[in-house]
């Protein structure tokens, strides 16, 4: 299949290894990956913070860049959620019927990585090898906005050599919430504190998720505490093989 990669702006900028992992993984599974270089940002931060007029140019841009793609795959449940759930609203707000129509046509072709693998391709074992102790944090948007269900766990359970430990109170928000972490920094910290306690209780080496945005939040605090626990996007585990990591 010809897969267009929507890397998302912060993966592109801060977590390029996640994007590389997606490319390696999809190519290993026999797909052709293309990266439309005109892509930038989905506009979620603007939209969810209330700057909805300012998000509309970014919505238009995304639709323009990906309108002819066979499928669009992204290693971010949150940005996929933005496209799927909020682009129709944004188009409505823009009062642009043409845009609304394009959005409607595009949405069924936009997938988060793990749902693409499990639900679209029907693959649960990607032949990965990762000899580490890992705990999985189901991010809010993967769980409740785009409902990837247990797709990430199905994939992780088939990774060889890996010890997967259940995260207590896994389904609770880590307190990121985009600009929430800044606007309501104190409440966000209280939420994050509890999440960290749960992560540390698992004695895992890595906390894994399908969203680097939440991982940037959890990982930023783990790093600050010098906790000795890393963060890893699920794509980077799935891309690793016995012949050596993908990196």
């Amino acid at each position: 299949m010809q897969v267009s990669l929507f890397i998302t702006c912060f993966n592109d900028t801060i977590f390029p290894k996640t994007g590389q992992a997606v490319v390696h993984l999809l190519e290993r599974l026999g797909h052709v990956v293309d990266f439309p270089a005109d892509q930038t940002c989905c506009g979620q931060m603007h939209y969810n913070t209330g700057y909805q007029r300012e998000a509309i140019p970014l919505v238009r841009r995304f639709v323009e860049v990906f309108r002819d793609s066979e499928v669009v795959v992204s290693p971010s449940a949150s940005c996929v959620g933005m496209v799927r759930e909020l682009y129709p609203r944004a188009a409505e707000l823009a009062g642009d019927h043409e845009l609304a129509k394009c959005v409607e046509h595009l949405i069924p072709r936009v997938f988060e990585l793990t749902e693409f693998l499990v639900q679209k391709l029907g693959i649960e074992d990607v032949g990965a090898y990762f000899p580490h102790r890992v705990t999985y944090h189901p991010t809010c948007h993967s769980l409740r906005m785009i409902s990837v269900g247990d797709a990430p766990l199905r994939l992780l359970r088939n990774v060889r050599g890996m010890e997967l430990v259940t995260l207590p109170r896994a389904e609770e928000c880590c307190g990121f919430g985009g600009t929430f972490a800044v606007k309501n920094a104190d409440t966000s910290m209280a939420m994050l504190g509890d999440k960290l306690r749960c992560v540390l209780d698992t004695r895992a080496e890595y906390c894994v998720a399908a969203d680097n945005s939440c991982l940037m939040h959890i990982g930023g605090a783990l790093h600050r505490q010098r906790a000795g626990v890393g963060i890893l996007h699920i794509a980077e585990i799935l891309a690793s093989t016995e012949k050596g990591g993908h990196r």
């Binding site: 801060i14 390029p16 940037m216 605090a221």
Partner: peptide, 17 residues
């Protein structure tokens, strides 16, 4: 408010693009 508790990971030496 962010850096009160969280470090920020910087722009990577080589972006994905």
């Amino acid at each position: 408010g962010w850096t009160a508790m969280r470090d920020v990971f910087p722009v990577a030496p080589q972006t994905f693009r």
